[in-house]
């Protein structure tokens, strides 16, 4: 039996998860998430981690491997670090065993990953450059329109005539949006327009790493945004040679933490097997 923890330090929130792995069976013992909101992420990571320990009725010494991911390299008590695409890939497979592609939609970057059935990363790519297609931008616009985060998706799917945002720079795009409001374009159509432009970028990202008929699991902060999921579906449907389907999971935000924990257990077992490490108990 291997006990492992995954701690995922993101831009918006810190997530922690603890797993028990025995003979290939993976059991999720505990989880915890804390929003960062201008607090020290390192401290929050420790808090979230302690919370999960408590929920799982474990002590830190009981754990065989503590894996960090995201921006958690600096956490002092970790055993190993996995980079977020590595862990998201594994987390996605855990959440849905058929998900061999992952779209991690975070506040600033989008990441596309293709894996095999074991969660082995076969290819990946991140968005870069200007941020007009980022989650942060969407959040700003929503605030401008007076729309709560959790309402965005619901409104977006009501769009009947989505208006596309043309500008490449997010600041200029913001002005575009202001112009739209003054032209009487409705909030659903504006939001859908942004979703579509984000989705188009992300879909291109998926295609460029060789996604064809995979099931795409959306993870990260925007995973629960129905509007984005729907827009992604539309954009992928338009794409020749791509038959991919998009899905999400209520626990999608934990994908990084789950993946880190499971890779931690995996790595631990390799190390034990190769004699590089002696099992404590």
């Amino acid at each position: 039996m291997t006990l492992s923890a995954g701690i995922d330090v993101g831009t918006g929130a810190v997530k922690a998860a603890i797993f028990k792995v025995e003979d290939g069976r993976e059991e999720w013992l505990a989880r915890s998430t804390l929003r960062i909101r201008q607090r020290d992420p390192m401290q929050l990571a420790e808090e979230a981690f302690n919370e999960t320990l408590e929920k799982a009725s474990l002590r830190i010494d009981d754990l065989d491997y503590i894996a960090t991911t995201g921006e958690g390299e600096a956490i002092p008590f970790h055993t190993g670090h996995f980079y977020s695409m590595t862990s998201h890939a594994r987390g996605a497979i855990y959440l849905n065993e058929n998900a061999t592609a992952v779209l991690d939609c975070g506040a600033l970057h989008g990441r596309a990953i293709v894996t095999d059935k074991r969660g082995k990363v076969l290819g990946y790519k991140m968005t870069s450059q200007c941020a007009s297609g980022s989650g942060q931008f969407l959040e700003n616009i929503a605030r401008y329109l007076g729309i709560a985060q959790d309402e965005i998706g619901k409104l977006s799917v009501q769009a009947d005539e989505p208006e596309t945002v043309s500008s490449i720079c997010a600041v200029l795009a913001e002005t575009d949006v202001i112009n739209m409001v003054s032209r009487g374009i409705t909030a659903p159509n504006i939001l859908k327009g942004i979703h579509l432009s984000m989705a188009s970028r992300l879909a291109r990202l998926l295609k460029s790493i060789g996604v064809t008929d995979n099931l795409v699991m959306v993870t990260g902060g925007l995973a629960l945004d129905k509007g984005l999921i729907a827009a992604l579906g539309e954009e992928l449907a338009k794409m020749k040679g791509v038959e991919a389907e998009v899905t999400s999971h209520p626990d999608s935000i934990y994908a990084g933490a789950i993946g880190a924990a499971l890779w931690g257990a995996f790595r631990y077992e390799i190390l034990v097997a190769s004699g590089q490490l002696l099992k404590a108990s």
């Binding site: 450059q129 188009s200 291109r204 295609k207 460029s208 794409m239």
Partner: peptide
């Protein structure tokens, strides 16, 4: 242009 970018060409 988008098609080419999908195929891996840089923006």
């Amino acid at each position: 242009v988008m098609e080419a970018e999908k195929a891996g060409h840089s923006e």
